[in-house]
Design a protein around this nucleic acid. Structure first.
Lengths: 118, 118
DNA sequence: CCCAATAGGTACTAAAAGGTGCGTATGATA
DNA sequence: TATCATACGCACCTTTTAGTACCTATTGGG
């Protein structure tokens, strides 16, 4: 059982939660309140149903998001940052903010990038 | 040429810089000053020479790190956050700090994890 | 009776990321 | 003259991650 996990630096542990292509995007979209599956899909064009639920399952297992199933038909499921997940908010904010500034920097350098958050 | 890159949320752009298994770790290690290749390898046990230089090349191309080659034998190369890369420091700090707290949380839950930064 | 709407499961495939091993260069040093 | 130390590059292979296509359940409404 001394199957101990040893980290050398805090960010390693963070990236176990924020790793992968979709988790940071999903979490950033959940910063300001809960969203149902279909809303997340709308906010994240390009994600497949499979990836969305898969990543949400992971985050649920990590106690970062809560899943709330309404008993109705057609189904309704809402996802939100858990209490513990809320502690990530400042981190997510800083990631989003830096990205926004970065995009502006790239634009100022004449690169063809845009930020299109409806 | 309207090969325009469109982001829906800032974090997407951030993760193009911080994506992958090694970049966040490398960058966090560079927060407090430059390090040479061998020092980085020592700080990041588990990374291969290939991955280390590959990721450093990527970060150099993104203008996040500077590479300084000393003209001596045996070779000496130092890497440091570029001026632009410095703007990532608060982000990296927040990633590291959250991870450290997270590790403590896991420990408090009885999980076998440790943070071992010599 | 069948379909729309919503959430999600599964199998298979494709692509990206990462790991391993081996080779190179140079000059100082034993 | 052989060896070491340092920082690579390259070719090949394995693993991980992501994408695609198709299937299920439920029930109100036409």
């Amino acid at each position: 059982m001394p199957e101990e996990k040893v980290y050398r630096i805090g960010v390693e542990a963070t990236m176990e939660v924020l790793g992968g292509k979709w988790k940071p995007i999903i979490l950033c979209n959940l910063r300001h309140g809960s969203l149902r599956t279909s809303e997340l899909k709308r906010q994240i064009p390009g994600i497949s149903q499979k990836m969305l639920t898969q990543q949400l399952r992971d985050l649920e297992a990590l106690n970062i998001v809560d899943r709330h199933v309404y008993n109705q038909v057609p189904p309704k499921v809402e996802y939100a940052l858990s209490d513990y997940g809320q502690s990530l908010s400042p981190v997510l904010d800083s990631l989003c903010n830096w990205g926004e500034q970065h995009i502006q920097t790239l634009q100022a350098q004449g690169e063809a990038v845009t930020l299109n958050m409806d």
